[in-house]
Write a protein that binds this DNA or RNA. Structure first.
Lengths: 339, 339
DNA sequence: TTGTAAGCGTTATCAA
DNA sequence: TTGATAACGCTTACAA
């Protein structure tokens, strides 16, 4: 392993001092063009790279941003991270990615790890198991925080979400227009605000259309295929079963469709299904799944921009007022509801 | 923003010196149990977190590992990163994720950014556009490097790959067993060794079964759905078209199946298709796609372990001999080839 | 067992 | 325009 070149090496080579070299790199006004170009040239020659640890220690900027997501292998988070990484890299930041596995304890541990690394800010989407916000309240006192998709309300951090309430009403409206009148909902746990709002939007949309809200038509579960399948079975076993499902995730919708197929119920003719998230597979399965798109990459980009804004304000010593950005979700009509 | 606590704060509070505090944290033998527990207690009280920038600068360990992948939104890489992150986090490392967008220039830029951040090692999967290895050769002289999935051969870095050659022969054997005799291949570009080996395995397997190698049956393309669709069309337009396709990616297979459907050719009855990668959608589409599983998460785990080994050797001042680990791919039989 | 002091590489302040 | 110096927070010989 080659020892890394430092500004001292450059200084020695040119017979000047480290401080002059430093000025050359930072485009300091009080340095001659001649030495500046000489420094840049030898830096290039000997393959010098600024040591971010040292400069970070000196001026309190690690150029690191931490990201905590439940799991990176979920398409939504992977895509959001893509947007985050690209936006922050352009501004010279490196992005540390960590996973909470939807566990409160892991989330706490990851926050500590990120603080140790001296990240300048943290972007996070909450673990399902996270019911209390103390760890984030503490975090907000240390660095700028941007929460996206799965957030706390009123915690004082900037947030970027989609309008889950509106997404649910769009889905229900669509099903009603297609003539489905007995609509059930398979939701995620209401402790997560995104899922809670989908439930609220679902209920309010039913009322708007004069449809009754039946508690036996509303379930909460982990958003995976098996749960969707299991709950669809329960719904079909009711004495008066529904004829449509609005699921809070495409995985739940997929599981529900699997059950419907097994029980010989035709989708969309006899039964309509709308999912949520626009997973890549949803356009590929048969029947393809009508869904609500969340603009996942855009959400990452906007969250990252919000982080950059906060960092900017902080650097200028100005007060930053946290802001909530809410994206409008988009209905994508496919086969599972097109009768 | 609250100012962060340092070991000096702890030292002052306890009327001891920073060096004693440091020893307490590092479990130094020459420190009393009493002061150690006192230090730990006040650290807890005032919410002290070790500054990794400072300790990293002091002892040359940033506790950072850099990862470069073509794009994090591809399921394979997202899943591999999941394995990498979990393995390295357990050992106290933070993982910086960057994307090359399959571009050589971006890959170079990301390497520089990671070196600036003083990463202790770099794990990478090569960009499609990367044809030369100079940037990685330089990198290997600076920090341990582990290449996974898309690698250079004989560059002196440890690698973790699957046996692409074997994967291709398994796929062809399966198609032959199912009675498909005119097998075409839609591959990725042969500049990437993984794709090149699939082509080689494909050809050799044909020979093994006494089938002729017809160059008009072999194509190279970017591994996406549209290319699969386009090339399948070309293949079907041949005067003597194939009756099976082994595609080097599930996306290519998906595109091919789309074309076959459009042209009224029954899969699998008239035409067999085998993909590669076991994408999440492949089990969900209709017909579901027979494919080769790459053990993506396991590959991430093994690559991370290989990195940890190298770091260990380096720390102990021992020489490390780079090693190549090759995973055996696994055939997953589904509808697209089951006649 | 604890304290002293130097140093990791960079940058900001001040002096030359 | 350049140089000397101190400091960021932590670690580690070495001295006490």
């Amino acid at each position: 392993m080659k020892k890394k070149a430092t500004i001292v090496d450059i200084a020695n080579k040119l017979g000047i001092t480290p401080s002059a070299v430093s000025k050359a790199f930072s485009n300091h006004p009080r340095i001659s063009e001649k030495t500046k170009s000489a420094v840049l040239k030898t830096a290039e020659q000997i393959g010098y790279q600024r040591n971010a640890l040292a400069s970070g220690l000196r001026n309190g900027k690690s150029e690191l941003i931490g990201v905590i997501v439940p799991g990176i292998h979920f398409n939504f988070f992977a895509t959001a991270i893509k947007g985050i990484e690209e936006t922050l890299t352009k501004k010279g930041y490196n992005v540390i990615i960590t996973q909470s596995h939807d566990k409160y304890e892991d989330e706490k541990r990851q926050i500590e790890g990120l603080l140790r690394a001296q990240v300048e800010g943290v972007m996070a989407s909450l673990a399902i198991e996270t019911k209390q916000s103390d760890h984030f309240k503490k975090l907000i006192n240390q660095v700028p925080v941007v929460l996206f998709d799965r957030t706390f309300e009123d915690i004082g951090a900037s947030t970027v979400t989609i309008d889950d309430y509106q997404g649910a009403t769009i889905a229900v409206s669509h099903l009603v227009e297609k003539g489905y009148t007995k609509i059930a909902h398979i939701g995620g746990y209401s402790s997560i605000s995104a899922f809670r709002k989908r439930i609220e939007g679902f209920k309010d949309a039913l009322q708007k259309y004069g449809l009754s809200i039946r508690e036996e038509y509303i379930h909460q579960a982990k958003p995976n295929e098996n749960e969707g399948s299991r709950i669809a079975n329960e719904l079909l076993n009711l004495s008066d079963p529904p004829n449509a499902i609005f699921a809070a995730s495409d995985f739940l919708a997929l599981g529900a469709i699997r059950t419907l197929k097994l029980r010989g119920i035709k989708v969309p003719d006899q039964f309509g299904v709308v999912g949520f998230s626009n997973e890549p597979f949803s356009s590929q399965v048969s029947p393809s799944i009508t869904t609500i798109d969340q603009h996942s990459e855009m959400m990452g980009v906007m969250a990252a921009k919000s982080m950059i804004d906060q960092l900017q304000f902080l650097a200028e010593g100005r007060d930053f007022v946290s802001q909530k950005q809410i994206l409008t979700p988009k209905l994508i009509v496919r086969e599972s509801s097109s009768r």
